[in-house]
Amino acid sequence: MSKIFDKTTDTLAASTNLRLLRQNITSSNIANAETPGYKAQKVDFEEALSRALDHEGLGKMHTSDDEHFLMGQGAIGRVRADVYDNPEINLTNDGNTVDLEKEMATLSENTILYRAALQLINKKLGAMKYAATEGAR
């Protein structure tokens, strides 16, 4: 594990990947908004990501096998999103459970937060660049 990038950057990088998954799933829901019998999918990762962050403080656990649960360092990059049928059912005659308004809201929220994460990554890189150049003078 490189130490150039700190915990924040790792978390931001993980969250952009997870947001991309949410974007794709939401696009799929919108495309299938009128497909009979289609079940709307939902992506959850915030909980898992914050849990991975919390454990960082206790990250003294030693893992001897790749299959072991990672605690602390490296756990953030391994956070998996949970994708499941959306239980907030919007019942229609044809068994489709997509709520188009909610999906559009999810979509714009996701885009904004994705861009926010990228902006933070850029700030981090900027600070690093500053330290690497100005500090030398």
């Binding site: 952009t16 947001r19 991309l20 974007q23 794709n24 939401t26 696009s27 919108i30 495309a31 908004a33 188009l100 999906e103 559009m104 979509l107 714009s108 996701n110 885009t111 994705y114 861009r115 990228l118 850029n122």
Partner: peptide, 18 residues
């Protein structure tokens, strides 16, 4: 709605390039 979704995905990709 699909056009908006595509636009949003495109925006994300463009900002990732930055």
């Amino acid at each position: 709605a699909n056009v908006s979704a595509m636009q949003a995905t495109k925006d994300m990709a463009m900002s990732a390039l930055e």
